[in-house]
């Protein structure tokens, strides 16, 4: 016996381009900060010269995020309701405070990092002066390492909350996955590193550092591929809704061509023998990685909504 739907109403979802763009820019910032933290938190001397440029890249990449978030609110003038109505079961409530604390801490981190390297940052003069005063008084101010750890933790939480924001939504199998936080974090790390690589390539780069950055990108892309495969296999095995979701993913050019092929597989190959002399190839690879990360966010948000609508 055949069955077919002849009239199906699905109320449209208001989440359009701004939500994936917000998730993307935040990820870019967090990824760049992770590179900076390789020196300040994990004490890798190779990244000493790169720590400040990476942190500044992280700050600049973050700037569009709150603007996009505010623009996505259909009642933007009521944004202050978020500060006076905290709902502990809402990921957005937590995220609101994280995306306020993270950039503040990032500014503090950049100011302290600049001071430790003897670099005066005109825009952060006030922050540097107050940090210097607190150091002079030997007050309870945190050390650079302490500030770095705090900023890194806030950055990771700020990135992860969006994965949980989607992950806790009931009835959307693509989002409702334990893989999503890891997947988003890997994508954030790889896009942020790619952006730092582009910045670094035009700042008298050292061969070894460029090679290490390329290896980090390659390794994280392989990790991303692992998450993608795991997602396909688990979704396909779960139920019919999962199967339909995988089919939608595979039929989405943003995902299959944009993210998987152009954003992951091609850069893995192009970065096989990284060298400062191959500046153009490295730049193209990094741009492809960033493009892939952007398209991944778009496809995860779009397909998640589309697949759930099929099941309405």
């Amino acid at each position: 016996m055949n069955a077919q739907e002849i009239y199906l109403v699905v109320n449209s979802n208001p989440w359009q381009a701004l939500v994936p763009l917000y998730i993307f820019f935040k990820g870019l910032s967090v990824g760049a900060l992770c590179i900076s933290a390789l020196f300040t938190v994990f004490r890798s001397e190779r990244f000493k010269r790169l720590a400040l440029p990476a942190a500044l890249t992280s700050l600049i990449a973050f700037i569009p995020a709150p603007i996009l978030l505010l623009a996505d609110l259909h009642q933007p003038l009521r944004f202050w309701h978020l500060f006076v109505n905290f709902n502990p079961t809402s990921a957005i409530s937590w995220g609101t405070w994280l995306i306020i604390l993270y950039p503040l801490c990032l500014l503090w981190y950049i100011a302290r990092l600049g001071m430790s390297q003897g670099i005066s940052l005109p825009l952060l003069k006030g922050v540097q002066e107050s940090a210097s005063a607190s150091q002079g008084q030997r007050s309870s101010g945190l050390s650079l390492r302490g500030v770095s750890v705090l900023t890194l933790v806030l950055a990771l939480l700020a990135d992860l909350y969006t994965a949980f924001l989607l992950g806790v939504v009931k009835g959307k199998v693509l989002w409702n996955s334990a893989l999503l936080p890891g997947y988003f974090l890997a994508s954030a790390l790889v896009t942020g590193t790619a952006l730092v690589l582009i910045v670094y390539l035009y700042k008298k780069p050292e061969e070894k550092t460029v090679q290490t950055l390329a290896r980090i990108i390659q390794g994280t892309l392989v990790l991303e591929l692992f998450f993608a495969f795991s997602q396909w296999i688990t979704l396909y095995a779960t139920n019919l809704q999962g199967q339909k979701t995988v089919e939608l993913l595979w039929h989405d050019p943003k995902y299959l061509i944009g993210d998987i092929f152009l954003g992951i597989l091609l850069p893995i190959v192009l970065l096989m023998r990284p060298s400062v002399n191959k500046k153009t190839i490295l730049t193209i690879s990094a741009l492809l990685v960033i493009l892939g990360g952007l398209l991944l966010r778009f496809s995860i948000v779009d397909i998640g909504i589309q697949a759930a609508a099929l099941w309405n």
């Binding site: 109320n11 979802n13 208001p14 989440w15 996505d72 609110l73 259909h74 009642q75 009521r78 944004f79 309701h81 978020l82 809402s90 957005i92 924001l165 806790v168 939504v169 009931k170 009835g171 959307k172 909504i305 759930a308």
Partner: peptide, 12 residues
Amino acid sequence: CIGCGYCISACP
């Protein structure tokens, strides 16, 4: 309501 659309996405 601030019109964030989270409830609309969250309604199965």
